[in-house]
Every structure is written in C-alpha cells, then in structure tokens.
Design a protein around this nucleic acid. Structure first.
Lengths: 327, 327
DNA sequence: CCGGATTATACTCCGATTGAGCATAAGAGG
DNA sequence: CCTCTTATGCTCAATCGGAGTATAATCCGG
C-alpha cells in the first residue's frame, strides 16, 4: 500500500496499556497501584482485545479486581530513553541505544468509586495509594507545603543558575511554582514534575544519571516512568473537573454538597470558596435534591443530593468561548 | 518482569504515525494531504526514531516536503474494525476477525504556515486540501450550510426513529447540530462525524456496510478512517484556539488584526464580533504594534502587528477557573 | 433548658468580563 | 468633495465571579 517497503511490523516494538485510576477515599485522592504503590496497573495490548479501552479494562480488573467506570485516553509514550536506568527494563546494563527493545505505552485515565463492600481492610490494602505521597508539593489545601520553600525553590534556583539557559530555567520555575507574584496553577502537575526531573531532584532522574548531588526530594518514586504518567493523569483530571462534571464518577450515589466540595478540593489540591462553589453547582443544575438529609456532620443537617444523569448529555454541548456574532 | 509470560511482542501489531497538519490559505482552512486529498501523511514508527514526534516530523517532511512547526499528540486509534472495508487493508476479502493484522495509529496535530516560496502553484498543488471539502456541514461562516436542513436533519431524524434507542438518538442529533433552541457548538466536529457515520450517511460507513439507502452526503471521503482522524484534529484545534495562542503558528510574521480574525473564523467555522475580538487580543497582550501599516485592504490602512513570543511562556500559566479561596 | 460550637444555606455587594452596538478616523476612487 | 470601505475608539448594559454578611438548624456540655 502507501508505505515504503521497509514498513514490515517491527518485532522489537511492544505495545502496553497502562492505567491511572483515580478515586477519593476518606477525603484524599488516590490512585490504583500494584505492589504497594510501586507501579500502575498495565499489560500488553493483545490481538484478542476488541479495542484499547477493552484491553485496558481487562488488565485493570484482572490485576486489581476493581471494575472501571469512566475512562478516557491520556497520552501515548514512546521516547527512546523513557525507561533509562529502570531495572525492570535491563537497568544500567542495557543502555538506551538503538537496537534496544522499544515499549509504546498507551495510557488511560480512569475514575472509580472506592467501594469498601464488605471489607474492613484499609484502602491501601485494596491497592489505593494517595497521590500526595508521590507529589508532596501538589497538596495546597493547607497552604503551600513547606517542602517547596524549604527544599524545592532553593535547589531549583541553584540548578537554574548553573545552566546555559539560566533565564529560561528561572522563568519556567517561576511559572510552574507561582513565583514573583504569579498565581499557583494547580494544573501544571506535569510541568512541575518534569522540571524537578530535569533539575535532578527526583529519584527517577538519578536513576537516569541526573542529580544535583543532594538526596532526592521526599515523595514516593515509582517503577519506570509511572510517576510521570501519574502526573499526566492528575493534570488532566485537574483540568477536566472544571468544565465537565466528572467528579460525580467518584462520588457515592447520594452525597452532601460539602462532600462534593471536599472531593473537588482533594483533586484540585486547593480549597474552594464554599458559597460560590454551591452557587456554581446549583446554577448548572448538576444535582437534584433527594429530599433527605444527613446529620453525620456535626452541625445543621445537610441536604442529600444526587447527580442528575441527564446532564451528561446536555453538558457535552458547553464549549469554551469566542466572541462570536449572533444572527 | 511484571507481565504474564504471554507478553512477547506481538508480531501482528503495526504502529503507524499519522498527521493532521493544518494551515490557513487564502482565508480557508486546509490540511496537508497526499494524492489530492485522499490520505493524510503517515508512516510506520520505527526503532530508528528518537521519539514519536521526531518520527512524525520525518514522515511528513519526506512525504510532503513541508517542515512542521508546532505539533501535539492527538489520539491513538486501534479499534479492531476501524479499517473495515478499506481496500488498502484487504477490503471485503479480509474481514475484521481475530488473526487479522492490527494497526495502531498514533495521530498528531500539526500547524504550519503555507509558504508559497517562489512557487506560483495553487495550494492544492502543494498538498493543501480545504477542510470543508470533507465536512461541508462544518462551515457556518455564511450561516448554516443548506445541506444541514435539506439533507442531514431529515435523514438523521429518519434514522433516529428506526432505532431501538430513538430517544437517545434524537437527543444526540439535537446536541450535535444545535436543534431545539440549543446553540451550534463548533467544537463537536467529531461527534457530528461519528453520528453521521452511525446513521450511515457518509461514504466510509457504507464501506463498512452501514447505509440508510440514499447516496452518501456531499463531502470528500478519505482512505481508511483518515476522515475521522481529521475530524479529531479539527475538533482539537477549534477547542485549543480558545485558550492557547496557537493561531499565530498559522500566521505570517506580520499581519493585520483582520487577517488574524479571518484565520480564527476559518478555523472555528463561524464569524466573530470584530470589536470584541480586537479587545480580547489586545487586553491579553498577545500582539505588539510594528509601527507599519498595510493598505492592501481597500479601506483605511490597518496597523501591522507581530506576535509577542514572550507570551508563549506566560500563557502556559492561564488555567481555567474554580471558585478558589485566596489567603 | 440554655448558650456555645458547628455546619448549612440564603443573600448582598461590587468590580471585572462580555455581548452588542454607535461613532469617528483614514484611506481609495470617482 | 462625496461615497464606499475598512480600521479603531468608546459606551452601555447584562452577567459573572470573588468575597463576605446574615440567618438557620442541629449537637453538646453544663
């Protein structure tokens, strides 16, 4: 057909599916992991799979026992040196030259409810692992984490000073961490992680031979580039909750507005204005009153709401804006 | 390592890179194609490629001679029956069962300036092919195209009536085409194409055995599922121009605000309010005055502007909004 | 039974943003 | 000079979004 004759299937290419499955348990955002937080669920894409989605669901369910609800494709990774230094990939003994076997990872973001059906085991026992254990600098719900001012900023500044493009490095740091009067932007999860990687402040960078000499930052590392994929997923979710009603995929069937707010705050890593949040939810008709109330919370009983499923279809239509002309 | 023993590389998997490269020529949005609009540039991903992006650039440049500027990953396709009935894939003689060879297509969106350097050949001769030739129902700059009311809506309605889930089909049609008092949403390019495909109104559907009996809608079909991939690219670009200054990648180094507006309108497929558009551009500091003017346009000479490159970095920081609390 | 403490929910206020349009400026062409 | 055409400046009202005040229900300890 249309390709040159050297287009035979390349036997050194492996295609794998990998999942970032998020939930909120006990007020904290979690991701589904294997082996106590070391790795994301993943498995090879096989001919038997009807589609990428189907294959992904199979693997996740098989490896973790959790059925998935909503899923969406995240990103496809295939850089030659993305697994550099990873022991599972041959480690230092298998440097990243040509001829190495190449893995293409197609990542998905999934959302699930943590459903402690019958079990009394803690979430960790069921594979859930808190995000902020991997990214301590991302949780600003109680103000900026001290690690930023105490460790990250000085070390980033030192790194920026050394480089040939000091100017650019300083600016990227400033944008990523909201310095010089800029606002903190919770969506820049991936940019921050990649900056820290480049600067040699995270464990994975040191595996690849990049380090600033000091020990890595606090924050649990993961196998291969799984932490980068997780960062990609978190970033996507933080963006998405703002224009599509996906939070509800993480909520129980019935909930109070404060519970909903706490879930959003957990994901976004920052606090939201209570009254304005309620106004936002209500004026968009996202929820409906169940008529019942909950008095679990200590104060005045809260109304219980349920998500209006009809919204799923309607809300597809809300775009962002351009100064269009009507006629 | 961590996967079951059957995780050997699958020799029946082929990985291809495929590009939707957009530009605006003479006021109309175009995409870079091969063979007069039949196919998008594409080629197998090879071990020699440093990264997906690098491989894509190689293929596009080799096949079309156009160097790429901005590119971003779009989506990865691998459904078993996405190439159903495509002659290049074995056609009807190679039904889509298991055992068939499987192609994974990693698609990218690229932006390029059409640069008629030296040539006087028309854009088509250089591989550019107007979007709206493929999607006549997407161009609303001169009002809703008549084909919608005359052909699409009646046939969609008929299709919706027959189905078991008539309710859902009608609602999806209404959302996609802005019926029943809803607004037209130019971002839903992919939803519309997929709806028309499901309803059997487009050529590609008939290849796969889906048709409503009548001849396909006007609009040039493409090889395999390239038209779907193009729809994905257009949708992404229409979304993206609203929150990231990517239009400038399509503009000459110096331009008038009206030229800029026309480019945006070409992409969005609808007209924008002139004065408000200017206000938007200026208040975001996206451009700077060059001091020169152009009198090409027949009326009062227009100031010439240039894109402020500094914005690229700054604008990364603009997120969407949540009612956050400041402290 | 009363007075906090605690959470829920209703409303108000104001500045910024956005949609829509009017008015004026500066050329070209007759 | 008059008219046509495009460019550009400016106004006005409606809406949105951020921030805070006020009031309503509960629980709990005394």
């Amino acid at each position: 057909m249309k390709h040159p004759p050297d287009s035979q299937p390349d036997h050194a290419l492996a295609v794998e599916l990998i999942a970032v499955v998020a939930s909120v348990t006990g007020g904290d955002p979690c991701v589904l992991t294997l082996r106590g937080g070391e790795a994301l669920p993943s498995g090879p894409f096989a001919l038997g799979h009807r589609s990428l989605q189907a294959g992904l669901r199979d693997w996740v369910e098989q490896q973790t026992g959790h059925p998935l609800g909503y899923i969406e494709q995240l990103y496809t990774f295939a850089d030659r040196d993305r697994l550099a230094g990873d022991p599972a990939n041959g480690g230092a003994g298998n440097p990243t030259g040509a001829g190495a076997r190449r893995t293409i990872s197609i990542s998905y973001l999934g959302l699930a409810r943590d459903d402690p059906q019958g079990t009394t085991a803690p979430p960790q026992a069921r594979g859930w692992c808190g995000w902020y254990g991997c990214f301590p600098w991302e949780d600003h719900r109680a103000g900026p984490p001290p690690v930023i001012a105490r460790e990250i900023l000085p070390r980033l500044a030192a790194w920026a000073d050394t480089g040939p493009e000091a100017r650019g490095r300083h600016e990227r740091s400033a944008v990523a961490f909201g310095l010089d009067g800029r606002d903190w932007n919770e969506e820049l999860v991936l940019q921050r992680y990649e900056l820290l990687y480049e600067a040699g402040l995270v464990e994975e960078a040191r595996r690849a031979g990049i380090s600033d000499g000091a020990p890595p930052l606090p924050g649990r590392a993961m196998v291969a580039d799984h932490r980068r994929i997780l960062a990609t997923g978190i970033a996507r979710l933080r963006t998405k909750i703002k224009y599509r009603p996906v939070v509800f995929e993480l909520m129980p069937p019935v909930f109070t507005l404060l519970q909903l707010q706490r879930a959003v705050e957990a994901l976004a890593g920052r606090l939201v204005h209570k009254q304005n949040f309620r106004r936002l939810i209500e004026q968009q008709d996202l929820v409906e009153d169940t008529g019942e109330t909950s008095s679990e919370t200590g104060g005045r009983p809260a109304k219980l709401f349920r998500f209006r499923a009809a919204v799923q279809v309607e809300r597809i239509a809300v775009g962002t804006k351009l100064p269009v002309v009507r006629s």
